[in-house]
Design a protein around this nucleic acid. Structure first.
Lengths: 245, 245
DNA sequence: GAGTGGTCTAGACCACGAG
DNA sequence: TCGTGGTCTAGACCACTCA
């Protein structure tokens, strides 16, 4: 026996799936929907909360409830030294970058294996597809690894270009360790990605080290959980016999 | 200005974090808590819903709200040919396995690259740590790759042992492709893992192929999102120049 | 100011668990 | 049966957006 809210949620889900309510469109007001389904507003709102957690709708205070654009999943490809987030390549990806000079503190010191308050360069990258934010990246590089001659870029060029440029300057043999976790977004992340704070994110911490073991980059990547996959491919060329554990 | 429910949630979170309410313990009834915080029961319940999504409490209908055991995170180590889910190794991990003979259908045919209704062996593994379910694994192996002489094990031995045994029978060079995604659990998964259906899970689809490209195993792994990380390490021994994209 | 969503109330009634 | 959580109601009032 399905509860009212799940029945309503399913009905709306179907309407969205069958494009009877199109992407980007506004739903009828909560009062109207409550009347249509003959439920009280709290009940209707709890139905919408289900859809919000599932990523179907986006609530905007004072404006309405909007159908999110179809889940055009992006794929994060692991194991590379560079940020590489598109696969649905047809997407017109727009990336904004903000650069800052900061000093290591807190868990950054552990990630980068540097002492507290050692100089770092921070890249804050936010990628959009149309109106929908797709990913948030915070990338930290020890300042002395930055090409100081190069004017530290302002806002325009793609974050990935910037990072890729540094990649070629690095020693070629490196180790990349990527830790994937699921969590709820921080309030900052939720607003940057325009998602509900109840919609879990896929968080990837990527630490890149050169052949000497020095950490040359730490990247904190965050994706809306419903819009991203991460793929890791391992080739077992040589049998690592008994390395189990 | 924090809302009532967030204030209450934070207060309870602190009490849990500082062990003023210990793991496994029951919280006071919702009516009592509502009285203590001088809010209505729906408001109090929405505070508990926050804690539930965050993984702090577990609601059990008719019994009460219970503090979940501390987030003893397990780490899934990617890139291996075997299931390897412990790192907090002190954990007394108990695994139950159910074996079944099924036939490929739906997306399994695509994953395993086998025709519809070709024979498979399914391993359904559920690992517990004490009372808390930690992971759910559904592993599919083409039946002809199974050592038929070996009696298909009943319920007792560890899933990982079973799978590890097959691993050594396989050609050593293989490719492992692991796809990590975030989603809400299915009702089955939620009840098997004893988590709220609002608590996102970390889902890993692992496809192992031998050197000929034949898929020898597909594993669908599900972990409670708040209890698991996945780590992937890549060694860039040889510079794959310009393999970008 | 009109319309929207956000929060909260003070109940009612139902469903589950344990004795 | 009793105590628990689960669902729902019919409002009230506040906060935000936009004309």
């Amino acid at each position: 026996m399905p509860s009212r809210r799940h029945g309503i949620a399913e009905d709306l889900r179907n309407q969205i799936a069958t494009c009877r309510i199109k992407a980007g469109e506004r739903l009828p007001s909560e009062a109207q929907l409550a009347a249509r389904y003959m439920v009280s507003t709290p009940t209707l709102r709890s139905a919408l909360a289900v859809l919000e957690r599932e990523g179907f709708i986006e609530k905007i205070h004072g404006k309405g409830n909007f159908v999110r654009h179809p889940l055009r999943k992006i794929t994060y490809v692991g194991g590379r030294g560079t940020l590489d987030t598109r696969t649905a390549a047809e997407a017109p990806l727009r990336v904004t970058v903000r650069t800052a000079k900061i000093r290591a503190r807190g868990h950054l010191t552990a990630l980068l294996k540097v002492p507290t308050s050692s100089p770092l360069t921070e890249f804050l990258c936010l990628s959009h597809e149309g109106e929908s934010p797709l990913s948030l990246a915070r990338i930290y590089v020890p300042r002395d690894l930055m090409p100081a001659t190069e004017p530290v870029l302002g806002e325009s060029p793609a974050c990935e270009m910037a990072v890729a440029r540094f990649a070629v300057l690095r020693p070629p043999s490196a180790e990349v360790r990527e830790t994937v976790s699921v969590r709820l977004p921080t309030p900052d992340e939720a607003s940057a990605l325009r998602i509900s704070s109840a919609l879990a994110v896929l968080a990837i911490t990527r630490v890149t080290a050169d052949s000497t073991g020095r950490v040359v980059e730490a990247a904190l990547l965050v994706f809306p959980g419903d819009r991203a996959d991460a793929v890791f491919t391992t080739h077992h060329v040589i049998d690592e016999s008994g390395t189990q554990g």
